[in-house]
Amino acid sequence: MEITANWYLILSAVLFSIGVVGLLIRRNPLVMFMCVELMLNAVNLSFVTFSNALNDVGGQVAVFFVLVVAAAEVVVGLAVIVAIMRRRPTATADDLSVLAG
């Protein structure tokens, strides 16, 4: 038996789905953020897989950019969370619903 690209891609799909479920069921904004990281990793994994399978290094470059943007996003996102948490230390994502129409 040989490990084909499909194995990696299925793993990536499962990882992504776990991230989705986590994002939807957790209420702690920090954990929700981690779930987003999970999904990004799933995508990165599929990028590398395709890069390897299609013999194209462009996929790896895409991963590089995803990493950079993820880093920037985490920095800003965490700063937002800090700003919120400083005012309301116990807030969950559900408590922050002031934008309700």
Binding site: L30, V74, L78, V82, M85, R86
Partner: peptide, 19 residues
């Protein structure tokens, strides 16, 4: 980047906010 920086940042924030 991920394990070394981003997750550490997460932990920092968790500890800082005491959540």
């Amino acid at each position: 980047v991920y394990a070394g920086a981003i997750v550490i940042l997460f932990l920092f924030v968790i500890m800082l906010l005491g959540v």
